[in-house]
Nucleic acid binder design. Structure first.
Lengths: 179, 179
DNA sequence: ATAGGCATGTAATCAGTTACATGATTTT
DNA sequence: AAAATCATGTAACTGATTACATGCCTAT
């Protein structure tokens, strides 16, 4: 269901788009919350059109189909957003990695955590750049909020990784009780 | 693959456990990074035993099987953690929701964001309580790092939701350029 | 002309959820 | 005796990834 919602959301915030456009947008704007490949997006858009959530308003050059959100689609997105029981499901490979890194030897864990921190620093730079070039959304002011969340979350993981690396090294070099 | 890794990780940090134990542990310790139901865990453990990553050391009362990580399992976990190309895949329904909330009318979005913030505040309290009662891990000091990350991430989303709600209300009440 | 990007699709496989199914042990 | 919890499993379905497949249009 979430893929449907994500697509409806993107069609709302970016206006009429092709499946190709939406696939790219999954990589840029919404990437820190959800991902989908074109092989999942195209069939889903067809189903959504069959269900009356979107319409194909025009067909362009290379068989390009431009999808527009329909009233029924707006209704469905709205209902999902207002619905009371939000499932808090989350699957983050990065967080899992972070969780398990301390099972390595202290010096290995610390080194790896610092490498992770670097990846997040790079990601952060990308996001900051995106923020600076914030001209790509139809509703002005919309993307900024989401981007801000992405930036803060990335920063928090980065900082955690650095601090944890330092603490692990400190604990290994200066064992308080033993082990 | 990640499920396998998560199970190997839990067997490392909590020692020999049954599938039932591991299912519960997915709900408590590792929940903010990954989830899995028993219907996925039991078959996976059987496959892992067939692949020599874990062994069944003892069988208890109600057909209970206690799995222990094998050398091959430790090797696989270690390799995964040290491997260079970490896929940054993440799927967070909460983040998706946060992303799309600003598509609602300002007052609706703000109200919903505040409701979200409350959920995160409650979750934060749970995690803080867990942190206080941190006596359940075999390797002392291990769980704390992961828990700390969970706490910080939850806090960041909570704060973002509150601030964004306030900003949306401000912008709606005091439109600078129009719309 | 050819390389790169645009654009859509399908098939096979793997991962994950929901629902069904069963039975033992412990607690009230 | 009944209810709660422990404990494992399977089947049907939905969601997601990887690989395959095709062809158009634009810039060099």
């Amino acid at each position: 269901m979430s893929l449907r919602i994500a697509l409806l959301g993107l069609l709302t915030t970016s206006g009429p788009s092709s499946g190709y456009d939406l696939a790219k947008r999954f990589e840029s704007s919404i990437n820190h919350a959800w991902q989908a490949r074109h092989s999942q997006i195209y069939p889903e858009l067809n189903k959504m059109a069959a269900d009356g959530l979107v319409t194909v308003e025009e067909e362009g050059p290379r068989g390009r189909k431009t999808y527009t959100i329909a009233a029924e689609g707006r209704r469905e997105l709205r209902e999902w957003l207002l619905e009371g029981t939000p499932s808090r499901s989350i699957r983050s490979e990065g967080a899992l990695r972070a969780f398990l890194l301390p099972t390595l030897e202290p010096h290995e864990a610390a080194a790896r955590l610092r490498a992770e921190a670097e990846v997040y620093t790079a990601r952060l730079a990308e996001l900051e750049a995106l923020k600076a070039a914030k001209a790509s959304w139809k509703r002005p002011g919309f993307g900024e909020h989401a981007l801000e969340l992405g930036i803060r979350q990335t920063r928090v993981v980065r900082d955690w990784a650095e601090e944890t690396a330092a603490e692990i090294e400190r604990a290994a070099g200066d064992p308080p009780g033993g082990e």
